[in-house]
C-alpha cells in the first residue's frame, strides 16, 4: 500500500485528530462548544475551521492546487489572525498536521512501507501550506491596519472637505 492509499484509509481519523488538536488551542469550554454545536451560523469558528481542514485533507491527496487550497486556508487563517494568538501560534495548526500524520502512520513508516520520496513529497506539501498561511496571515494583519485607517477617513472626510482642508482640484 502506498502513502496515498494509507492516507485515504486513515483520512477520517487524521481529520478528527487534526480538528481535536485545533480545538485544544482554545479553553476547554470553548472547545466543547466548537465541537458540539453543528449549526454553522451558531458556531462559525468551529464550522469554518472544520470545513477548511476537511478540504485541506482532501487536497493533500489531490496535488494541492493553489486555486483550491487558498479558499480553504484563508477562512481559517483569517479567524486566527484576529484572535488572541501570536503569529507562530496562529498558523501552528499546519505543522500539527505533520505530527498527526506521522503518529498515525508510525508503524508503516518504521516498517519501511512508505518510500522516502513519498514522505518528502508529503512534507513538502505541508510546508507549502505553511508558507501560504504566512502569506495569508500577513495579508490579514495588513488588512486590519488598512481598514482601521479607512474607517477613520470615512468618519471625518466630509468634515475636512467642508472645511476646505482637502480639495479635489478636478472639481
Amino acid at each position: 500500500m502506498n502513502l496515498a492509499d494509507l492516507l485515504t484509509k486513515k483520512q477520517a481519523v487524521i481529520l478528527e485528530r487534526w480538528f481535536q488538536w485545533f480545538l485544544e488551542t482554545y479553553p476547554a469550554e470553548t472547545a466543547r462548544f466548537m465541537r458540539e454545536e453543528k449549526n454553522r451560523f451558531a458556531n462559525p469558528v468551529g464550522s469554518s475551521v472544520y470545513q477548511g481542514i476537511e478540504g485541506l485533507c482532501q487536497e493533500l491527496l489531490q496535488g494541492m492546487e493553489l486555486d483550491r487550497v487558498y479558499p480553504l486556508l484563508d477562512p481559517i487563517v483569517r479567524i486566527r489572525a484576529v484572535q488572541d494568538f501570536p503569529p507562530s501560534r496562529a498558523v501552528a495548526f499546519i505543522f500539527a498536521l505533520k505530527k498527526v500524520i506521522f503518529e498515525e502512520l508510525e508503524s508503516e513508516i518504521r516498517g519501511g512501507q512508505i518510500s522516502v520520496e513519498e514522505l518528502l513529497e508529503l512534507e513538502s506539501r505541508i510546508d507549502n501550506l505553511a508558507l501560504l498561511s504566512f502569506d495569508i496571515y500577513t495579508q490579514c494583519r495588513e488588512k486590519v491596519s488598512q481598514i482601521r485607517v479607512e474607517e477613520i477617513k470615512r468618519r471625518s472626510e466630509r468634515l475636512l472637505q467642508r472645511a476646505n482642508l482637502v480639495v479635489d482640484p478636478s472639481e
Binding site: 479553553p27 469550554e29 462548544f33 454545536e37 451558531a42 462559525p44 488572541d84
Partner: peptide
C-alpha cells in the same frame, strides 16, 4: 446563554459567556 454571545463565539474567550 453561554454560547449565544458574539464575543464568545468570535473570540473563544469563555469569560465572554
Amino acid at each position: 446563554c453561554a454560547d449565544k454571545c458574539h464575543f464568545f463565539i468570535g473570540s473563544g474567550d469563555p469569560r465572554n459567556m
